[in-house]
Design a protein around this nucleic acid. Sequence first.
DNA 1: TTTAGAATGTGATTTACATCACGTAGCTAC
DNA 2: GTAGCTACGTGATGTAAATCACATTCTAAA
Lengths: 192, 192
Amino acid sequence: MDARQILKEHIAKTTSLTEDQFDYLFSHFKLQTYKKGQVVIREGDKVDHEYFVLSGCLKAFFINDEIKMYILQFAMPTWWTSDYAALYNQTRASINIDCITDAEVLYISNQDREKICDELHQAEHFFRWRTNRGYLASQKRLLSFMNNDTKARYEELLKLYPQLYNLVPKHLIAAYLGVSRETLSRLYNAHK
Amino acid sequence: MDARQILKEHIAKTTSLTEDQFDYLFSHFKLQTYKKGQVVIREGDKVDHEYFVLSGCLKAFFINDEIKMYILQFAMPTWWTSDYAALYNQTRASINIDCITDAEVLYISNQDREKICDELHQAEHFFRWRTNRGYLASQKRLLSFMNNDTKARYEELLKLYPQLYNLVPKHLIAAYLGVSRETLSRLYNAHK
DNA sequence: TTTAGAATGTGATTTACATCACGTAGCTAC
DNA sequence: GTAGCTACGTGATGTAAATCACATTCTAAA
């Protein structure tokens, strides 16, 4: 399936657009391919774009004290990613985003998104729902962090994204769960 | 300041509405006053409304195993609160919301919000930004959870909401930070 | 005023996890 | 090939915080 069709079907799940409206929206996106390991956003960068993943897997992460890595999000196909705090507040990136695998993305500038939202009520509707979905996911993860122990969070993650188990190295899963790779390894092996 | 004016100024920060547009929007809100301790949403309830706090302080919390409480949000004046997962997905409430102090709120039904967003592009714009702000706050808190130790999170919280220190009991602050009240007490007294 | 229930402080013990240390297996490059 | 890097496993030890237990203060109701 081509990029245009993937985005179109993604939007159609929550918002009805005419062919012309979608074409207009789509004309503001650009396609980019990345190789495994390539950096999309580096801490300290100016952030102008947000990214819609077509294929592959990206990670958004934070490095503490130049040592510890915490993964905020694995961005899988049809997920959106960026440093939204930097994007909306016009500040420098405080997180990094790079590619765990080869990847294809569509990207759009903050300016263009705001312009289209202003011009096209339905686009504003779509982006409200997109943000809403992100908000609910973030709240759910926060609750899980407070409420569940590491083992339960690990099982929850694999249930939600079974692909991750084979796709990404275990130490990245540990960095998502917020535990050391050693703890995850022990948990995982004691488990059965 | 009256309810109408508080909401009006709150919206004006991000969105321009004519007097007529605001009047129309405002006509869908109802005023409610609560006494300290009153319940707004109880786990298992049907959730039809979201709430805009005019005065006082509410808490949104989750009870685990009938024992441990985790606070998702302290809702202060000009903050919005509800069980949004339940509200948007039309499921029963999985969290509770009640009043830490006497409080006044404006509330609107999910149906009316969606209706107004549909009718009035500027309303959709406002609610996109409102949700966006919540998303950014939630991401920031998640990062803080992973990145900072309890003491740093405690200081961060008091810096963000100095009023909380005198307004709410310490065990609620502990429940927000995700630590036991004993740990918070020791931390707080060792601190100086 | 008395009484009961919250809210808070503090010691003793246990526990989950981080950290350090070291080992092995597998992939990639030259 | 082999040299080097990354991923991953596992033991030993240290530590922050949970948990349990009990005392004290404060508040609100009878």
